[in-house]
Amino acid sequence: MSLTYLEAIREAQAHALRDDPRVFIYGQDVGAFGGAFKATKNLAQEYPGRVLDSPISEDAMVGLAVGAAIEGMRPIIEMQFADFSTVGFNQIVNQAATLFWRTNVPCPITVRLPFGGTSGSGPFHSQCIEAIYAHYPGLIVLTPATVEDAYAMLLEAVALDDPVIFCEHKFLYYHLKADELPSEALPVGKARISREGRDLTVVTYSAMVHEALEAARELSGEGWEIEVVDLRSVKPLDTDTVVASVARTGKLLCVGESWPWGGVTAEIISRVTGEGFGLLDAPPQRLNAKDTPVPYHPNLWAAHRPTARSVASAARNLLRS
């Protein structure tokens, strides 16, 4: 048996629907059609009345989820693309994210954001906006990089009593495969060492984990051993694992597909310099997408985001410094 990242997301939702009657899915085209990416394929047929089409109203979709959560449900909201979640931004950051703090009533909703760039998708179907959600208190922001994590973390997201922004990378949907679904997993909030190394730490998440691993393989041929830390969850952020890795390697490169101003990579560098300045043998570096909207043409797109080649190049500069 072989399973893609996208199929793992579909299976996690089937599992959640099967095990918990409080779970329902609400989003555009998620019903009989099975979703724009088929992440809810056949679920409406298998779970009648629990996988429901919504109007094109991201604000009202999230508002409805918050009301349902108050009433004890565990809604999963599918945004067709992460980019469109900005239309529901107000309900996410002001309603869902503040409810528990204001009232002590938890808000267990999961908002699925198909995010990140794929060739040809252009400025409005490619965005990485995890940092914007992570900025607001009251939200958990997850960024699985593997098929196993996509499955296990989505299940945990639905089980958590808090609003979860589940960033599932569209670039990983089809080509990333696993042999079977995991029976156990690291809990939310823990980072993973995806590859061990002694010379430099690359901290990254989601699709960039795979670019970093490829860069590490390339550098291994040149005699450098790169440690790759997969954050898995950008909020909460597992600072301990990152700092421990930097303690071993002395060098830090943070890689993110999102825009360079602020964001996750800046946050990591801030934390590592604050908590472990003495561990660093060289100024910490970061590599992000360029500060423009995400371009459409493959030539431009490939140069806009970090790739294995640009990660390796940045790592070499840091290793030689």
Binding site: S57, D59, A60, M61, V62, G63, L64, A65, V66, G67, A68, A69, I70, E71, G72, M73, P75, Q91, Q95
Partner: peptide, 10 residues
């Protein structure tokens, strides 16, 4: 308004 909708929906 949509939050009220959500309670009624549930």
């Amino acid at each position: 308004i949509s939050v009220v909708n959500g309670v009624l929906f549930a």
